[in-house]
Simulated assay, not measured.
Amino acid sequence: MRECFIEFRNVSFRYGDEQPWVLDDVSFTIYKDEWVAIIGHNGSGKSTIAKLMNGLLFPQKGEIIINGIPVNEQTVWDVRKQVGMVFQNPDNQFVGTTVQDDVAFGMENRGFAREEMVNRIDEVLQAVRMEDYLLTEPHRLSGGQKQRVAIASLLAINPEVLILDEATAMLDPKGRKEIMRTVSEIQEKNEISLITITHDLEEVVQAERVIVMNSGKVWAEATPRDIFKQKDDLRKIGLDVPFVAVLADELKQLDIMIKNEPLNHDELLEELWTLHSKM
């Protein structure tokens, strides 16, 4: 049995008493060390979920539990010690005049000893491959480099959960791949829970599980493979499917009998090679 880490219990939220519910009776569980992708069209409630997890917002109905702690105004700082969040625009998170200062900021606020801070700065910047930029001013960095520093700043305070809220949306394809490769390595090495809120389908297929939001409700939750089998239904709620899955369907229309549901190019090539070998 996996250890439950985050629970949403019948959570509802809206931005004002006269506004429609952004989240409507939402329940789900995220386990320790699990990678979950949350997807949905704009306005489906996925970014609101991230802010509720971090105590930036509080629900009007229901309850949120983080590692056994109910999220409320009294516990919010205890929750934030465990939950780190990287936003779409890293410039909004920088507070230091250099990369070194920015990574140190969170540790200073938590009373880390100076020697430990120095060691951890070196450690986390190496983890995100930014150790050569220690004294660089953040505004001189590229978008991908800024996101790496933002991730390092969170890793320095040892979060149990890392949330990426559209954190790669402003990057080019190469930058997105580099960031997700880094995050994947960090998640595996540090055994933290990873929650990615994204429109990027290449990110989604890497997750262990996908939660699909639609009109403020959980529309579905399953493995990426099982989610993307529902191609027509996903399109009806305004979501796309990976190109490889679309291509596999087109090949089936040509009587090329692909048995599995490939999610990436390697899986599709493996299917085609297997078919070729049997001919």
Score class of each variant (00 low, 15 high):
43 G>F: 09
18 E>Y: 07
32 K>N: 13
30 I>R: 00
17 D>E: 15
52 L>S: 06
58 F>T: 06
56 L>S: 09
20 P>E: 14
48 T>I: 13
26 V>I: 08
27 S>A: 13
44 S>A: 15
34 E>A: 12
14 R>N: 10
21 W>N: 04
37 A>R: 08
52 L>H: 04
49 I>N: 03
14 R>M: 01
29 T>F: 03
32 K>I: 03
43 G>S: 12
34 E>R: 10
44 S>I: 01
38 I>W: 02
56 L>R: 03
55 G>K: 06
35 W>K: 14
43 G>W: 08
45 G>S: 07
18 E>F: 05
31 Y>P: 08
33 D>F: 11
17 D>W: 07
31 Y>N: 14
40 G>W: 01
38 I>G: 07
45 G>N: 09
17 D>M: 09
53 M>V: 03
54 N>D: 03
42 N>V: 14
36 V>W: 01
15 Y>A: 13
32 K>S: 14
28 F>H: 10
50 A>P: 04
56 L>Q: 08
54 N>W: 00
19 Q>L: 12
47 S>T: 15
42 N>K: 03
56 L>T: 04
14 R>F: 00
47 S>N: 09
14 R>G: 00
40 G>D: 06
53 M>F: 02
16 G>I: 12
34 E>L: 12
55 G>W: 07
54 N>V: 11
34 E>T: 13
37 A>K: 08
52 L>Y: 08
38 I>E: 09
30 I>L: 07
43 G>C: 11
54 N>Q: 03
57 L>N: 11
55 G>F: 04
58 F>I: 07
29 T>D: 12
29 T>I: 14
32 K>H: 11
19 Q>G: 04
23 L>I: 01
31 Y>H: 15
15 Y>R: 10
47 S>Y: 07
30 I>W: 00
16 G>A: 13
48 T>C: 13
34 E>Q: 15
52 L>D: 04
48 T>N: 11
14 R>V: 00
45 G>R: 01
32 K>C: 09
23 L>D: 00
30 I>N: 02
55 G>H: 07
26 V>L: 13
40 G>L: 06
22 V>N: 01
30 I>D: 02
55 G>L: 10
39 I>P: 05
32 K>P: 02
30 I>C: 07
44 S>W: 03
39 I>Q: 07
32 K>L: 09
32 K>A: 14
16 G>E: 12
23 L>G: 00
33 D>G: 09
29 T>L: 13
56 L>A: 13
57 L>S: 04
58 F>S: 02
46 K>Y: 06
19 Q>Y: 04
18 E>L: 10
14 R>W: 00
49 I>H: 02
49 I>R: 03
19 Q>K: 15
33 D>N: 15
55 G>I: 03
39 I>L: 08
32 K>Q: 15
20 P>F: 12
32 K>R: 15
35 W>V: 13
39 I>R: 06
55 G>E: 03
44 S>D: 05
19 Q>W: 02
29 T>W: 00
22 V>A: 15
27 S>G: 11
40 G>N: 06
55 G>C: 07
24 D>C: 09
49 I>W: 02
34 E>G: 12
37 A>P: 11
45 G>P: 10
53 M>I: 06
42 N>Q: 12
36 V>G: 04
51 K>Q: 15
25 D>V: 02
45 G>M: 04
58 F>G: 04
22 V>P: 00
41 H>T: 14
19 Q>P: 00
53 M>D: 01
43 G>R: 05
54 N>F: 00
43 G>N: 10
